[in-house]
Amino acid sequence: MSGWIIALILLLNIILQATVFQYIAVLGIKPDTAIAIVVALSTFLGKEYGMVIGAAAGMLQDIVFAKPVGITTLSYMLAGYFIGINSDKIFKEHMVVPLAFSAGATLLKYSIGIFFNYVLGVQIPLFAYIRQYFLIELIYNCLVSVVVYRALYLIYQKRFLRYRLRIKKKR
């Protein structure tokens, strides 16, 4: 059942990203709330769930808005997996967690994006790309991630997600 809730969150997110969030762009840059969700859920639920949730969030975005399909899927899946690996070793309550993880996830997304664009022959002025997109999105994602993390943490604390997914609390 809770898998459905996560699916609903991802679906709602992509719809909001495609419509309402177009209006909260700062310097032309929209926040990537999908990354914020992947960061939060991977931290709470671990690497395997992180990987699946990341892949699902990326696949949704790729199918509807991207060509070719798969670059975002790969970056979110790896982000979910790597965050999940570290989820046991950190204090989940600390606000540095979403900041650091979403910074890492944004870096990973841009690295993979630039790599595949290069492979597929799209010319990218690297430094302008970093200055114009990456740095602003990095800051914006980190800020948004703190809010999203807090909100999803509250849901998680209510044992709503955890029990429905039958995940044992790790001692």
């Binding site: 992509i14 719809i15 990203q17 495609a18 419509t19 969030f21 177009q22 032309g28 840059i29 929209k30 990537d32 999908a34 975005q61 509807v64 808005f65 991207a66 060509k67 975002t72 994006g113 790309y129 997109y133 999105e137």
Partner: peptide, 13 residues
């Protein structure tokens, strides 16, 4: 009906 959430793309549907 929707625009790409990706900041590096201006694709719309």
């Amino acid at each position: 009906i929707g625009k790409s959430p990706d900041n590096t793309s201006s694709i719309f549907i």
